[in-house]
Nucleic acid binder design. Structure first.
Lengths: 159, 159
DNA sequence: ATCCTTATTGTGAGAAATTCAGAATATTGA
DNA sequence: TCAATATTCTGAATTTCTCACAATAAGGAT
């Protein structure tokens, strides 16, 4: 992989270095595929594996979709990307990890937005009784209607 | 469908009648397939479509899996069953609807438990900011480790 | 009780998303 | 630069679920 300052936008170069450092510190080799997947995911949060593959192909035209899947699965395990599975649609990926933010998706158009945790203290982690399950984390998925779909919504239709 | 008191356990007969009434009031015909699917789902909450099909086949040996899918999709729309999609596994169905209860699944064995809403007032429906999305409902999914897997867990492994 | 209308189910194929095994390739430490 | 082995590629396969159309059966009317 050649890194030319003249052909690569500087902010991407920096990002590339950062991702590379993170990968190395996690015991992973720094490959152009991983960097491209990370950058594509970073650039467009809530992208599907297919969309990420399409993005990546602008840099690496011959990358296979399967490789993107493998890379994403590995990065997800490393916690460099987070996988979100909205109902009835392919999994989406984002680079925002570590904060336990949640997601709202539009039941009409499928649009997904990030939603920060409701109250300061994660309220969803203290259910009334836990059946002996040791809880690790909670993910909240909001069903909603995005502003675009609200304006376009005919009042007759019951959602 | 013949209904013989001597061959059908009375509690199932009653349940059958109840489901029948509900279906009728929702403008649906009362078919043995629908009743069998409802009873199977009721008997074993958090079953997958395949598991429900297997259960149903004990009564209706020749029902196709596709029909079970169609019936479940329709019953879900009617709100007689609720569909839950845990990450990385097939959708699960249950007859407990209307209360907005949540789910905890074991990250190791996949076991799913019901969890009643954390605090009295649905806290998860008031996110800090909603990006203009009109929120309709929230579903909380708890990741956890069930008691069986806790005992069997080697302390070395980082979960 | 029987027939007819039409909802429901069955059949068979097929789509979409994802995973797997083994061969080829590329990164990194020496 | 080279070797070791992590990573990616190739191609097929799997799983879950959907679709179109034919066959069947539920429930009201006669």
């Amino acid at each position: 992989m050649q890194r030319s300052v003249t052909t690569t936008p500087s902010h991407e170069l920096v990002a590339s270095e950062e991702w590379g450092a993170r990968l190395r510190s996690l015991g992973r080799r720094v490959t152009k595929q991983r960097l491209a997947v990370l950058q594509a995911t970073d650039r467009r949060p809530h992208s599907s594996a297919d969309e990420i593959a399409a993005q990546v192909r602008e840099q690496l035209p011959s990358i296979s979709t399967q490789s993107v899947y493998v890379v994403l699965a590995d990065l997800t395990n490393l916690d460099l990307v987070r996988k979100f599975e909205p109902p009835a649609s392919p999994a989406l990926y984002e680079t925002r990890t570590g904060d336990n933010h949640h997601h709202a998706y539009c039941v009409r158009c499928g649009r997904v937005d990030d939603v920060d945790c409701a109250v300061g203290h994660a309220p969803c982690l203290t259910p009334s009784h836990d059946h002996g399950m040791q809880l690790l984390s909670a993910e909240v998925v909001y069903r909603g209607l995005c502003s675009a779909c609200q304006s376009r919504a005919d009042p007759e239709s019951r959602l």
